[in-house]
């Protein structure tokens, strides 16, 4: 019997999230979405609890988590940065913006800065191609970002 450790309030929160979707297996993606919103990421323990509550296999939960690039199993920063690499953003220089971010924060894609403040990830199209290239930080969206704007944007979060 293997044991999974998770703090009590976290388990309760997760159970509540599952309940808010009537513990339906078909709501798995929405449940994971909420769980990640609350915990910042989806560690194995969280997936175990979700699987149990929705009565689906853990392998299935893990399959969904690894399929969608939005879900992450590593803790994200306090301010998660996503750079859109969809076609429109890409051709308008998203890659340069990304390089600039990596240079400033000194972490590769998919990882979090040592102080836990920022994490960098890429995503495919946020549906705002008119604003390309697009960067999102937390809930905020930045449009028509140029590599030269990166330093100023990051400054907004330094206090």
């Amino acid at each position: 019997m293997a044991k999974i450790k998770l703090a009590k309030d976290k388990i309760e929160k997760l159970i509540d999230i599952c309940k808010s979707f009537n513990n339906e297996g078909s709501e798995l993606i929405n449940v994971l979405h909420q769980a990640q919103h609350n915990f910042g990421y989806l560690p194995a323990e969280v997936q175990e609890v979700v699987a149990r509550e929705l009565d689906v296999s853990v392998a299935h939960v893990y399959g969904v988590v690894t399929f969608y690039s939005f879900f992450t199993m590593v803790p994200m920063g306090e301010f998660p940065i996503s750079v859109c690499m969809g076609t429109a953003c890409y051709v308008r220089g998203a890659e340069k913006v990304l390089e600039e971010l990596k240079k400033h924060l000194k972490v590769p894609i998919g990882e979090t800065t040592e102080d836990g403040k920022f994490s960098i990830s890429c995503l495919r199209c946020v549906g705002a191609c008119g604003l390309a290239p697009v960067v999102t930080i937390g809930e905020r969206t930045y449009g028509r970002v140029a590599a030269g704007d990166v330093a100023d944007i990051l400054k907004e979060y330094q206090n």
Partner: peptide
């Protein structure tokens, strides 16, 4: 027989 279910333990 043995209990082989993953147990979720409260920390």
């Amino acid at each position: 027989y043995f209990d082989k279910k993953n147990e979720i333990e409260i920390e």
